[in-house]
Deep mutational scan, measured.
Amino acid sequence: IGSLMYASIFGNVSAIIQRLYSGTARYHTQMLRVREFIRFHQIPNPLRQRLEEYFQHAWSYTNGIDMNAVLKGFPECLQADICLHLNRSLLQHCKPFRGATKGCLRALAMKFKTTHAPPGDTLVHAGDLLTALYFISRGSIEILRGDVVVAILGKNDIFGEPLNLYARPGKSNGDVRALTYCDLHKIHRDDLLEVLDMYPEFSDHFWSSLEITFNLRDTNMIPGSPGSTELEGGFSRQRKRKLSFRRRTDKDTEQPGEVSALGPGRAGAGPSSRGRPGGPWGESPSSGPSSPESSEDEGPGRSSSPLRLVPFSSPRPPGEPPGGEPLMEDCEKSSDTCNPLSGAFSGVSNIFSFWGDSRGRQYQELPRCPAPTPSLLNIPLSSPGRRPRGDVESRLDALQRQLNRLETRLSADMATVLQLLQRQMTLVPPAYSAVTTPGPGPTSTSPLLPVSPLPTLTLDSLSQVSQFMACEELPPGAPELPQEGPTRRLSLPGQLGALTSQPLHRHGSDPG
Rank of each mutant, 00 (worst) to 15 (best):
G127F: 01
G127V: 03
D128A: 03
L129Y: 10
A132N: 10
S140V: 07
E142Q: 09
E142Y: 03
E142M: 05
I143N: 01
L144Q: 04
L144E: 04
V149D: 01
A151I: 03
I152Q: 12
N156M: 05
I158R: 02
F159H: 01
F159A: 03
F159T: 01
P162Y: 14
N164A: 07
Y166A: 07
G170N: 03
G170K: 01
K171T: 10
S172H: 01
N173F: 08
D175G: 03
D175E: 09
V176K: 01
V176A: 06
R177Y: 03
C182M: 01
R189L: 04
D190T: 10
L192E: 01
L192D: 01
L196P: 03
M198Y: 10
Y199G: 03
Y199M: 03
Y199P: 01
F202M: 09
S203K: 14
D204R: 10
D204G: 09
H205F: 07
F206S: 01
W207C: 07
W207N: 04
S209D: 14
E211K: 09
E211P: 04
I212V: 12
T213P: 02
N215G: 02
T219D: 13
N220V: 10
N220Q: 13
P223G: 11
G224Y: 10
G224T: 15
G227L: 13
S228P: 09
E230C: 10
L231K: 13
L231C: 10
E232V: 11
E232A: 12
G233C: 12
F235Y: 11
S236A: 10
R237F: 08
Q238E: 10
R239W: 13
R239C: 15
F245H: 07
R246H: 10
D250L: 12
K251R: 07
K251D: 13
D252F: 13
D252L: 12
Q255V: 07
P256A: 13
G257C: 12
V259L: 10
S260K: 08
L262Q: 15
G263S: 13
G263Q: 14
P264N: 15
G265E: 09
R266N: 12
S272W: 07
S272E: 10
S272T: 10
S272V: 13
R274H: 01
P280H: 15
P280T: 05
G282W: 06
S287M: 15
G288L: 09
P289E: 11
S290A: 10
S290C: 10
P292T: 06
P292Y: 15
S294I: 13
P300Q: 04
S303F: 13
S304P: 08
P306A: 15
R308F: 05
L309H: 05
L309W: 13
L309G: 12
L309K: 11
P315L: 15
P317C: 04
E320N: 14
E320S: 07
G324W: 04
E325F: 10
L327D: 08
L327C: 07
L327N: 05
M328L: 10
K333W: 13
S334P: 06
S334D: 10
S334Q: 10
T337G: 10
T337Y: 09
T337L: 07
C338G: 10
C338I: 11
P340F: 04
V348E: 11
F352L: 10
F352Y: 14
G356P: 09
G356R: 11
G360D: 07
R361T: 08
Q362N: 06
Y363A: 10
Q364E: 09
Q364K: 05
E365M: 14
P370C: 12
A371C: 10
P372N: 12
P372R: 09
T373C: 10
S375N: 01
S375Y: 10
L377P: 13
N378C: 13
N378I: 01
I379C: 11
I379M: 14
L381I: 13
L381G: 11
P384L: 12
P388M: 11
P388N: 08
R389S: 15
R389P: 05
V392D: 03
V392P: 06
L396V: 04
A398T: 06
R401T: 05
L403P: 01
N404W: 12
N404M: 12
R405C: 12
T408S: 11
T408G: 07
L410H: 03
D413Q: 01
A415G: 06
V417L: 09
V417R: 03
V417Q: 07
L418Y: 03
Q419R: 11
Q419H: 14
Q419A: 12
R423N: 09
Q424H: 07
Q424I: 11
M425Y: 11
L427G: 11
P429D: 13
P430C: 12
A431W: 10
Y432G: 10
S433G: 11
V435D: 07
P438A: 10
G439P: 15
P442W: 08
P442S: 09
T445K: 14
T445Q: 04
P450K: 09
S452R: 10
P453A: 10
P453D: 12
L454M: 15
T456F: 08
T456C: 12
L457G: 10
S461F: 04
S461H: 04
L462H: 14
Q464Y: 13
V465H: 07
Q467F: 03
F468D: 09
F468K: 11
F468P: 06
A470D: 11
L474H: 11
P476I: 12
G494T: 09
G494N: 08
Q495P: 13
L496Q: 12
Q502F: 05
H505C: 06
H507R: 05
D510I: 05
P511G: 09
